[in-house]
Design a protein around this nucleic acid. Structure first.
Lengths: 257, 257
DNA sequence: CAATGTATTGTACTGCGTAAGAAGCATGAC
DNA sequence: GTCATGCTTCTTACGCAGTACAATACATTG
């Protein structure tokens, strides 16, 4: 946490980087694409906290400041990374036929985004700025909107439906990834952790009574062994959302969980 | 971005801080509560990036290291802050009668959480860790689950429904706050920004064609003057979600937008 | 009033993004 | 082949973060 001097970032420069990347190879072999790829690989393996300019430069075998002419700064690099991975979201899947059921299409979108977040966990950590869509993000948006086109929704409703779907996915992904990270770092299993924490928590909470919360937490613990089940919540929420969408467009979808 | 040495943090200590805060006032007048309050005030006004231990200590008129005996470290302070504001979410609202319509109750929850995020924008920036619920969070959870109790949902479904609702809210809040921040920082209005960016973007995108995306973006721009409308998406998504919930529990709710 | 233990402070370490200027290297002109 | 030109790359240094560690100031007890 707590960022250091990060210049505002020039939008025009960013657009250039996104849409017209320099292909010319200079004497070190650096290009925005090469740097972005190295940065993505690093972030995939070690998380954004490990993604420092120094480290990326080190991985590429050049000095820290050598990167700055190609990427404008750290925040621009993050945008380049986001756009690059966005271009891959639907690259390795065969989309269901456009004529197919809309529920299938939506589930395909949700699943692809889920897989995307799981493959690149750092994508849930980046706070979106003023959106400057690059080719990857634009293509992804186009693909997703197309799946919602022709259902009888207005343009605005299409966008809002998509936002809701992607929001459910990214929320669940964020929580799942957060849990996974903590498990890796703490070297304690969930059971061990609860055993160490449970007693003192029970003692501390003595007196306060949360009847419904206690009942629900107990049920959750029995069913999933965890205090929280983000992926389950996501699939359930998506089902409800699609039911609501079915009602809205009069297509009478059935809830499938 | 990029955090520095942040110890893992002792869960047991955190539980103690959350549930049995030291009331004893030492010679400087410091207590966890006082520090937490100061930190919240600072974060509310200047954002989490401004929330440094040094700064909080300065605001309280003590040296940096004086805080460490009371809060265990920065991450524990964040947890204390989150729990403290969670306790306030429903403090200043009169909840609708339990006997009332469930849609009203859910809308009340969503609205309270929306207001909460708007009052404390930093709440959308904090990555959740392994959940160690304090009294504030627990009380909030209890209140929210109670609003969903008795609708015929299973315990797990209640939790998942709540997760979906709160997810929609926090996503929309995150985007809204992000946009607001950028507007404040860039000192350019949205119109000015688009005027500066639009032309080069248009030129860059020449050749690529995104028919649906272009149409939808145009509609969005006309309707809201913006490329994105998080709050609208949130209200629309919530409506759909509640419609789906209505279908599920057979209560036949009507979509109200 | 002295002794003791804790609350507080000062100093220092490491690591970050990046500004500024020095140095290195490829390229074209003669 | 030699050399000036101009971009590329590297070195150095600044400011600021969290917090470890040791020294100091203070309140309390006898």
């Amino acid at each position: 946490m707590a960022k250091r001097a990060e210049r505002p970032g020039d939008p025009a420069k960013l657009i250039g980087l996104l849409w017209r990347p320099t292909e010319a190879v200079s004497r070190s072999g650096l290009t925005p694409k090469v740097i972005t790829r190295a940065a993505i690989a690093l972030a995939d393996q070690e998380g954004i906290d490990a993604l420092t300019i120094r480290r990326v430069a080190g991985d590429l075998g050049v000095s820290t400041m050598a990167l700055y002419p190609y990427i404008a700064g750290r925040s621009e690099l993050l945008e380049l990374m986001l756009d690059a991975v966005a271009a891959e979201v639907y690259a390795h899947t065969t989309p269901p036929a456009q004529a197919g059921q809309w529920r299938t299409r939506i589930e395909h979108i949700a699943q692809a985004n889920w897989d995307h977040h799981m493959a690149h966990p750092w994508t849930v950590d980046i706070a979106a700025g003023r959106p400057v869509p690059g080719p990857g993000v634009s293509g992804k948006y186009e693909t997703e909107l197309s799946a919602l086109d022709g259902l009888g929704l207005s343009d605005i409703e299409m966008d809002q439906t998509l936002t809701a779907i992607l929001g459910l996915v990214s929320n669940a992904a964020r929580e799942t990834i957060s849990l996974r990270r903590i498990r890796q770092e703490s070297s304690l299993t969930d059971t061990q952790w609860w055993e160490s924490v449970g007693p003192s928590l029970g003692k501390a909470m003595a007196g306060a009574s949360y009847p419904v919360a206690r009942r629900v937490a107990a049920s959750l613990g029995e069913a999933t062994g965890l205090a929280t089940d983000p992926e389950g919540a996501f699939r359930f929420g998506l089902g409800m959302l699609m039911d609501g969408l079915g009602t809205l467009i009069g297509a009478r979808g059935r809830h499938t969980l």
